[in-house]
Simulated assay, not measured.
Amino acid sequence: MTIDVTTWSLEQTAAADVSPAREPGAGAGVRIVRAEVPSPAFSRFLYTAVGADNDWTDRLEWSHERWLEFLDRPGTETWVAYERGTPAGYIELDPQDAGVVEISYFGLLPAFRGRRIGGHLLTWGARRAWDLAERWPGRPPTKRLWVHTCSKDGPYALDNYRRRGFKVFDVTTEAEVATGAEG
């Protein structure tokens, strides 16, 4: 069985494009911290914990060395949202050539969805993408921030990106073989 999967590519072209979300309430105990030490085990945990129900599979076969190679590149950053000390979600910034930064992965663990953490984390991550050169000497200033999301992601993903100031620049639809979760 196949399903049609729509992918939206979105971008911001200036730091002023970031439209901030309201922060979770003060009692929520949410803080966002950069994981400064490249840790393949921790990054794999975040990837599988967030992506398991969204059909993220492209990194499941990565070796420890491949994870480390990706995470240890200058400018690559992982920002983790914690609620009262528990990892709630993450955003991964992937620097590319000519001042381009991709949000390669972003999402929340299922138990933390629907609590205003996602919009807050996306705002934080977008702002960190725009000031990336300040933390990485030799990195050109960010000129473009982009991301893609698809119809297999959470039901609010596309709307969250749009509310944070991202604009759609491409839409594609392709047939994919359905896994047990979709069919």
Rank of each mutant, 00 (worst) to 15 (best):
Y82V: 02
S43A: 12
P137A: 07
L109W: 02
W136K: 14
H120G: 01
E69N: 09
V5A: 06
A49Y: 00
R144P: 06
V147L: 10
G183W: 03
V18T: 12
E182V: 13
N160P: 01
P74A: 11
P40Y: 13
F45Y: 15
P155L: 05
T123H: 05
S104R: 14
Q12L: 06
I32N: 04
F45T: 08
S63D: 04
N160R: 14
R115G: 06
W130Q: 02
G99Y: 08
D131Y: 09
L60P: 00
P87F: 07
G118T: 08
R162Q: 13
D4A: 11
A98R: 12
G29F: 11
R163E: 07
P137T: 06
V80R: 00
W146R: 10
F42V: 13
R113C: 01
P155M: 01
Y105S: 10
L93E: 03
N160I: 04
G99S: 11
D17P: 06
W8V: 03
D170V: 00
L68W: 05
A52K: 11
T149W: 01
V171K: 08
A129D: 06
P141K: 13
D131A: 00
I117F: 01
T78P: 01
T86Q: 13
R59L: 07
F169Q: 00
G154T: 12
A15V: 04
R164K: 07
A88W: 01
G29T: 02
L145A: 13
G27M: 15
S9W: 13
D58L: 02
L60F: 03
S39K: 03
T76V: 15
W124Y: 14
L60M: 05
D53W: 09
R164M: 12
H148N: 15
G154H: 12
L93T: 02
T2K: 15
G114R: 03
R73V: 14
F166C: 04
D17T: 11
E182S: 14
D55E: 12
D94Q: 15
R44W: 06
A88Y: 01
